[in-house]
Simulated scan of single mutants.
Amino acid sequence: MTDFALLTGLFWSAFLAATVLPGASELVLIAALTEGEVDPVAAVLVAGLANTLGSVVNWAMGRYFSAYADRRWFPVPRPALAKAEAMFKRYGVWTLLLAWWPFGGDALTLAAGFLRVPILTFTLLVGAGKFARYAVVAATTLGLSG
Rank of each mutant, 00 (worst) to 15 (best):
134 Y>M: 03
7 L>S: 10
117 V>E: 01
41 V>Y: 08
16 L>G: 00
77 P>H: 11
63 R>G: 00
22 P>K: 04
141 T>Q: 10
45 L>E: 08
93 V>R: 13
89 K>P: 00
134 Y>G: 10
44 V>D: 09
107 A>D: 03
57 V>C: 12
111 A>K: 05
109 T>R: 05
87 M>F: 05
24 A>K: 02
143 G>T: 08
58 N>P: 11
27 L>G: 15
49 L>P: 05
108 L>H: 07
120 L>F: 12
11 F>N: 04
125 L>Y: 12
142 L>N: 04
40 P>D: 04
56 V>I: 15
118 P>W: 02
126 V>C: 11
122 F>P: 07
62 G>P: 11
50 A>T: 13
125 L>C: 03
13 S>M: 04
118 P>F: 03
118 P>E: 13
19 T>Q: 08
111 A>H: 07
44 V>G: 10
68 Y>R: 14
124 L>T: 14
1 M>I: 10
143 G>K: 03
63 R>H: 14
143 G>M: 05
37 E>H: 10
84 A>F: 08
127 G>R: 04
69 A>Y: 01
13 S>L: 06
41 V>Q: 03
38 V>M: 02
81 L>Q: 06
72 R>V: 03
109 T>V: 07
66 S>Y: 11
120 L>K: 10
30 I>P: 08
28 V>M: 12
110 L>W: 07
33 L>V: 07
107 A>H: 05
76 V>I: 15
95 T>S: 09
89 K>M: 03
81 L>F: 06
75 P>V: 05
143 G>L: 06
17 A>F: 01
88 F>P: 00
29 L>K: 13
93 V>P: 01
141 T>M: 10
51 N>T: 09
127 G>H: 08
114 F>E: 00
48 G>L: 01
33 L>S: 11
131 F>P: 10
69 A>T: 14
103 F>L: 15
44 V>H: 10
12 W>D: 02
90 R>W: 00
5 A>S: 13
29 L>N: 11
36 G>K: 02
73 W>E: 14
131 F>Q: 08
